[in-house]
Design a protein around this nucleic acid. Structure first.
Lengths: 205, 205
DNA sequence: TGGAAAACATGACGGTCAGCATGTAAGTTC
DNA sequence: GAACTTACATGCTGACCGTCATGTTTTCCA
């Protein structure tokens, strides 16, 4: 018999908290925000409603915590990948692929659910905005390091254009748009970006 | 006293139907899909729950009808604006502005709500997909007419890139992102598009 | 002009939700 | 090891939801 049943309070707290947040994200991805109920989350996390009551005073607070949990994961994943990228033109294309991978996965799906919900929920919006801005800024920082020679201003433009394009494409993917077309569009955008990159580095205005 | 109280059956039917659909869209925009209830819609439309029951057998059917109502409006608006556009490079920039206007307004907000909801609602998704595809194709048709000299394939690329970028920007707007930055990004994209347009028309591969 | 039919209103029903009160078990502190 | 605190479970409650059965008004038509 191991004494594996013994956990310190902090461990217990952290474990069920993480279980709840992960379950929340799963719910958002699988059934959507509108049908994500506390009961459903509890069932998936394997805890009772009393537990979530103990950790989060209201449902909105749980959602807010889920957002942070989510963006933390996304940030870490993007940061790791971006840091081992080659510099220069080929790096630009690779960076775009990475941004697409980051913004088209399940994590981003959950974020989109929360975003849209936050539009009409002031409390949720207040919770989301800062972490989202932090995610954007942190990612931008890594990206500008990759595109070293490019003027920061132009690198930022390229970055944000890519992010917004990617999010639009992710939305299309969620609705079941044509994957081949998305692939072609992304390739085309990479071509354009590399072209612009070359222009900006060889003939700076 | 006018006899304005007299309405033919068809008129009555059409009026309350339109009132319900408009109220549905208002609800989607103002309170979001998750909190859009039949009661709320009825209250805004000034009818009873029995009325919606009479016109639509289930809530999903009402939503589906709202989608069609919505895209019909969007299509008409975009088609009208696009037809009176100048041809050539300046037309490209103007077309991008129009697409942005179309996809950033309240109509598009409602569509986004439904889209995201449809991701986890097969019935709703089945209702949305065809009308959305029709909207895309119809708009594309108008756009390709504007960019006459451009090879259709490249015009299509530019169109879809613009649409997806615009939708990403619209999402950012919904979350309260910086409007100035969006403006700058859109201007930058217009510059790029005009540049690409010029390249493609002067030196076709 | 009166009856049929369509359009709409009213009220009720089963179900689910979030939040809370209250109870119990596990860990901590002395 | 006993008092105490934290972590979690259970059961309830009032509110709201979508749907339906049934009643009322308006239009139509012969």
């Amino acid at each position: 018999m191991t004494e594996s049943t013994h956990r310190t309070q902090a461990q217990r707290r952290e474990q069920t908290r993480a279980a709840l947040l992960d379950a929340t994200i799963d719910c958002l991805v699988e059934v959507g925000y509108a049908r994500t109920s506390v009961q459903e989350i509890c069932a998936r996390a394997g805890v009772s409603k009393g537990a979530v009551q103990h950790h989060f005073t209201a449902k909105a607070e749980l959602m807010a915590a889920a957002v942070e949990h989510l963006t933390t994961k996304l940030r870490r994943r993007l940061a790791e990948s971006l840091d081992e990228l080659p510099r220069g033109g080929s790096g630009v294309a690779a960076a775009i692929d990475l941004l697409w991978a980051g913004y088209s996965g399940t994590l981003s799906t959950a974020v989109t659910e929360l975003w849209v919900a936050a539009r009409t929920d002031a409390e949720l919006r207040a919770a989301i905005r800062p972490v989202d801005r932090a995610l954007g800024r942190a990612t931008l920082e890594h990206v500008t390091q990759v595109a070293g020679e490019l003027p920061p201003e132009r690198a930022e433009m390229l970055f944000w254009l890519t992010v917004h394009l990617t999010r639009g494409l992710a939305l299309d993917a969620e609705l079941g748009g044509d994957p081949t077309r998305r692939r072609r569009l992304l390739d085309e955008w990479k071509r354009i970006a590399v072209l612009l990159y070359a222009d900006a580095t060889t003939a700076p205005s």
